[in-house]
Each structure stands twice: as C-alpha cells, then as structure tokens.
Design a protein around this nucleic acid. Structure first.
Length: 263
DNA sequence: ATGGCTGCAGGATGCAGA
C-alpha cells in the first residue's frame, strides 16, 4: 500500500496537475493540504473517476485538507482535538480496514507561524502541542497510524539549502524543531529519514527567485509512522520531478510504501 | 531586499503563504 502526502496549493488551480500525477503514480491513499476550497466546491467527481473515495475538511479561501483513498472509509474525523475555538481547517483523519486490522491516516496542515514573536507563532506551537497529545492518544491504540502532511517544520540543518537564511523563520525555530522532535520521541518514525539520511532531500521550493532552478529547497512535508506502521515501511520517496511541471504546486508529493494489503 | 510568485475572493487589490 502506498500512502502519499501533497500540499497542492489550491485544488481548483491544480486539478490538471493533480490528475496527471495520480494517473501516473496511482497511490492508494493521498493526503492533500491547502485545498483552499469549501467542501461543496471540491472537485470530487474528477478524483472519483480515478477510483478514489473522497473526504474533505475545507474552508473558504485558504487552508483545507482532504484524503483520497481507493479503500472505503470506515470512519472519518475532522478537526484536531484540544481547542473548540479553533476554526481553521487543518486536520482530517481516515480509518481503513486492511488485512488483519485497520490503518489510520491523518492529513494535517500545520500552521506556518510567521512572523515569529507574534500570535501566529504562538498558534503554531499551541497546535503542535495539541498534535502531540493526539499522537500520544493514538499510540495507546497500538495500531498502525500515519500522520502525514505539511508540518511547516524543517527538522534539521541538512533539510535546508541555507540554514542561515532560515534562522529567523518560524519553520526553523528551535521551538518548532523541538516540538517536532517531541513527536519522534513519543515513538513515531520519520519515514523519509528511516530510509535515506542524505542531505538535500527537499519537498518545497519557493515560487520566487528561481528557487527550483537553483535547488533552494527545504524539507517540510513529512510522514510520521507509529511503531505498528513503521514496522511495515518498505520505502519512502520524494517525487521531485512534478515541481518542474507546468503550473506546479510549490510542494511535491512524498510517498511511503507500507506492507499492508486490502482486506 | 524592500518577499522578486501564486491562489483566492471578488470584481481592486489585500491577505496568506514559507
């Protein structure tokens, strides 16, 4: 089973690009972020035509997440627990039956948090603490769980082309990186780093200043695996080449292959 | 660089992104 995460930066602006990649890669589960669409306007029929079940958690204008799955959804949960006042659409969880049990897949869009020193950064850190509490609860189930999405965190200096240039950015703050590490310390595995420890594995290149051509990238899109999922990890790949397509997202898909079969 | 693009909402340009 292949599980992908992809910040598509607007599902309506990206529909042709998205269909092209899904047609060529055909992942079993796809976690989308920044759909920038309300649920009613999400182009679900186009994805259903490729054989996907579709669940969305959108809002007007920005944010918004979705899960596409070739397996039927047993359960869907919208919104990260821990703050009833939080109206931003950044979290959706799907549960699927697989041979021998279930697998849980979350599509998350963690707040950017810039500029630092503002309530936006406080919101990012608070959101990460809520995610840690959620992740801890899910670990207690002792089930395969995949927390996939745009974390807006550069975990390490080897995940950025120029660490100094990002020193004052919310994505590379010690506090952001520590909160990310707290997730790993719970017992989650960074799927990419479990299979590839080399520097320069990027998932995002800015639209500006020819960042893609110069390979000025950062790694901020991650799949974190519970032990029961990590035990079945076979491979993890960053699909860089779609960044060079016409009308690309500024992020590219990341795909993990896990040894699970349909029930 | 002083964010140099991009998408969205809406019907001009401001907001948000990273």
């Amino acid at each position: 089973m292949r599980i992908a995460t992809w910040n598509i930066n607007g599902v309506k602006a990206r529909i042709e690009t998205a269909l092209s990649w899904l047609g060529e890669a055909s992942p079993d589960v796809v976690c989308l972020q920044e759909i920038k669409s309300v649920d009613e306007a999400f182009p679900r029929a186009e994805f259903e035509r490729l054989g996907y079940n579709v669940e969305t958690h959108g809002q007007k204008g920005f944010n918004g997440v979705a899960i596409l799955s070739k397996l039927p959804f047993d359960e869907v949960n919208r919104g990260l627990p821990g703050d009833d006042e939080d109206a931003q659409a950044r979290f959706i969880e799907g549960v699927f039956s697989v041979k021998g049990g279930v697998i849980r897949v979350v599509s998350l869009y963690l707040p950017n948090g810039n500029p630092i020193g503002t309530e936006k950064f406080d919101y990012k850190i608070a959101w990460m603490r809520r995610l840690e509490a959620f992740a801890r609860d899910r670990l207690a189930l002792e089930e395969p769980t995949v927390l996939a999405g745009d974390y807006n965190v550069i975990p390490d200096a080897k995940d950025v082309h120029d660490p100094r240039a990002w020193m004052n950015d919310a994505l590379f703050q010690p506090e952001s990186r520590m909160a990310f590490r707290s997730l790993l310390n719970l017992g989650y595995t960074d799927a990419l780093r479990a299979t590839d420890d080399s520097p320069g594995r990027y998932t995002f290149w800015d639209y500006q200043a020819g960042a893609w051509q110069k390979n000025w990238g950062i790694r901020i899109d991650h799949l974190l695996l519970s032990p029961q999922a990590a035990d079945r990890l076979e491979a993890c790949e960053i699909v860089s080449h779609v960044r060079g397509w016409e009308k690309p997202s500024d992020h590219v898909p990341v795909v993990a292959r896990l040894r699970f079969e349909a029930p």
